[in-house]
Design a protein around this nucleic acid. Sequence first.
DNA 1: TGGCATAAGTTAGCGCTACTTACATTGCGA
DNA 2: TCGCAATGTAAGTAGCGCTAACTTATGCCA
Lengths: 236, 236
Amino acid sequence: MPTATVRPHAERALAMTAAKRRAKPKAGYHHGALRASLIDAARHLIGTHGESRFSLADACSTAGVSTAAPYRHFSDKDDLIDHVVAEGFGDLTSRAREAAAHHPVGSEARVLEIGRAYLAFGLAEPALFRIMFAQTPGRSRSDLVHASGSACCAYVLDEVVQYCHVNDVDGSADLVALQLWTFVHGVTSLVGGAAYGAVVAEVEVDRLMESAAERLLFSLPRRNGARGHDLDDAHR
Amino acid sequence: MPTATVRPHAERALAMTAAKRRAKPKAGYHHGALRASLIDAARHLIGTHGESRFSLADACSTAGVSTAAPYRHFSDKDDLIDHVVAEGFGDLTSRAREAAAHHPVGSEARVLEIGRAYLAFGLAEPALFRIMFAQTPGRSRSDLVHASGSACCAYVLDEVVQYCHVNDVDGSADLVALQLWTFVHGVTSLVGGAAYGAVVAEVEVDRLMESAAERLLFSLPRRNGARGHDLDDAHR
DNA sequence: TGGCATAAGTTAGCGCTACTTACATTGCGA
DNA sequence: TCGCAATGTAAGTAGCGCTAACTTATGCCA
């Protein structure tokens, strides 16, 4: 047994600032909030270096623990990533809900703000957004990912369906909702990537989305025979 | 010096079948078509195990060479992946061009078939499709990737712009083309992932795309004041 | 046709990573 | 306060990307 045990990782306090908002960090042998700290660190590292460059060892050193510590909280590296993805879906849903809250149900502004929140999330963390909707061929994601992911998609789709019901849109509300979600997801995927930059100016992305929402939803005919919007609104 | 040199990798011939269509494989110390074989192997392995699980060593063993061999042809692992991506963009463009060739310029069928080819490519190789449009935050892709990628996108967009010109569509053709491409890309991204499966039946994807093309392009007003299609066609 | 520069392979080895095993430390409840 | 479960560490293994130094085959040229 060692007579004078050196307290390792004295610099841990420096790395804990990121997790401070989540739990009380106690300096010492036990980290106190390692689970949350590792998720935070992984999310940040994936965002800055990409998923393929992300290493568990990096996350450990930023959290200030040894490389064996994560296995007390996660079964393996993929399990940690799954928790990052689930947290991402939770954040995306929260952001969309917050954006919607300021506008009445069934209003165009509400639908548009949800779309903008979706896009803003993808722009803020493109690498996270990508792994959220990706699936590795070999393995299946955890139930946590499936639950949070389908909850997120279900919410977004439901908001569009509600717009259709409130405004008596003719035709299949599910189809329309799926189309709009698909489009917003497409914009978000492309602007987060490299291909878009050469083609689209960032200022125009919002106009692109508004115009698409107009053509895919707002201008759709209503059950009473009227038309939601004059189509000319879409390209003035 | 060894007196009796054993010829290593006698089983190489077995692994060469995949590259046989590309170059003449000569059994022996020199592979003969290693560059192409490695690209093939990488593309296949990324497709079956995902990018994050793809290892250069696996590609080497399927090609039947040592792990140092790739560095005679590629600067590093990322360089090999870049070549896979460039080949992917080339294939995607080829498929789209072939699909378009059977229909007159400016016809709805031509636009739809290009969209279907795009979707079919993404369904056939989802992992490849994903890395084609992804970018790792830390590093920039090679000029090869940028060239093939922007050529692919430029072709797809140009076809929609041509439709607009042939049919005298009113408004910005660039905007419309971008919208349609974004939508098709969104469908392809989502069906390749896990989120869609729970929501959309695969049979309906084609109807989804057709209906979106109707609303985003075919039903748009024309310069002479007419309307391309009656909007009701979109949801009969 | 011989000879040689060079292209294109190989083996050996380094540092990093994911993960496991065995051990150390701590907090908490009986 | 004791003991145990939770949570950390250190050490070790296998596999990975990549490099350095060496070996083999090929094409070209006197």
